[in-house]
């Protein structure tokens, strides 16, 4: 398998070409494809299993650089599983399996010579539940990624401030950076986790329902953060909140399992998905008729 994507370089406007090629390769229709930005992240025919159970089937999506993509769909349709495929967290579940390709800047992250930790450094993740390291201070939490991955930084204080500012937490914690991370509220903890993910300068940030445990105020602030961040990185966010998806995402992919494995029913510009979806199931879901 070549590590160079055949589409590299032409990808900016290659939506049509790409879809044609994809159709040849997988036999799926072009709705599974998002319009491409400059390279970025792409999955080709992704399947995931838990033991014998096929959780997602044949998902081919492309995530343009500097965009926010919302993954929507009812519970259990495989959104989170798909998300975890993108930075190789899926493999931590015992008995899990994977087939297909995940290309980061054209390189298959599941290729044998690729180191998973290196991928996770480039593809950061924010979890559903805030999970700051309780044994560390606020500052240490932000810089934890650097220590864990042994990255040297010239000015830690600047990075610390930069990350916390970008996560929208700086004003609230700048006077107590040495305090325990456990002393923050839930919303603050979640933004701390975002700041922590930013410190290692990922190219892609995966967010698994980052606001599900937060109050409306905190949610609003996290959303603002997401919009700001999307200027410099690719963001993929799983959410159950339709308004949130509409507010923050540029593109949307609608997952549905219908009893079997999860598949992408439809993907495209958020405005299209919400206002003029092709598939009637998408329309039903985004309008709250089921799910």
């Amino acid at each position: 398998m070549s590590s160079e994507s055949p589409l590299e370089g032409t990808a900016v406007t290659a939506s049509g070409v790409g879809s044609a090629m994809r159709e040849v390769e997988t036999g799926r229709d072009s709705r599974n494809l998002l319009p491409s930005g400059a390279s970025g992240l792409e999955t080709i025919g992704a399947h995931a299993w838990f033991g014998k159970h096929l959780a997602i089937e044949d998902v081919s999506l492309r995530f343009p650089k500097s965009s926010v993509t919302g993954l929507i769909g009812p519970s259990g349709c495989g959104k989170s599983t798909f998300l975890r495929l993108l930075n190789r967290m899926h493999e931590f579940i015992p008995g899990s399996a994977f087939a297909g390709q995940v290309l980061l800047d054209g390189r298959d992250i599941y290729a044998p010579e690729v180191n998973a930790t290196e991928i996770r450094l480039k593809v950061g993740m924010v979890f559903q539940k805030p999970n700051p390291f309780p044994s560390m201070s606020i500052a240490d939490n932000v810089l934890a990624g650097l220590r864990l991955a042994r990255i040297k930084v010239s000015d830690k204080n600047m990075l610390l401030e930069d990350c916390l500012v970008r996560a929208g937490l700086w004003k609230e914690v700048k006077d107590r950076l040495k305090a325990s991370a456990g002393s923050l509220s839930g919303g603050q903890q979640q933004r701390l986790c975002i700041a922590r993910a930013l410190a290692v300068k990922p190219e892609v940030l995966l967010m698994d329902e980052p606001c599900s445990a937060l109050d409306p105020g905190s949610t609003l602030r996290v959303e603002e953060t997401i919009v700001q961040l999307s200027e410099s990185m690719t963001i993929i966010i799983v959410t159950h909140n339709m308004q949130q998806a509409a507010r923050v995402s540029d593109y949307c992919a609608f997952f549905l399992s219908e009893g079997g494995p999860g598949r992408v029913v439809e993907a495209g510009l958020t405005s299209t998905i919400f206002t003029n979806p092709v598939d009637s199931r998408t329309a039903d879901y985004v309008q709250g008729r089921f799910g």
């Binding site: 930075n87 967290m89 700051p132 390291f133 922590r196």
Partner: peptide
């Protein structure tokens, strides 16, 4: 917590000893 560490690009060793 373990996942948080891994998601930051940590190896298992540094995950165990640092987190």
């Amino acid at each position: 917590l373990r996942f948080a560490g891994y998601a930051l690009g940590s190896t298992q060793a540094s995950n165990v000893f640092r987190i």
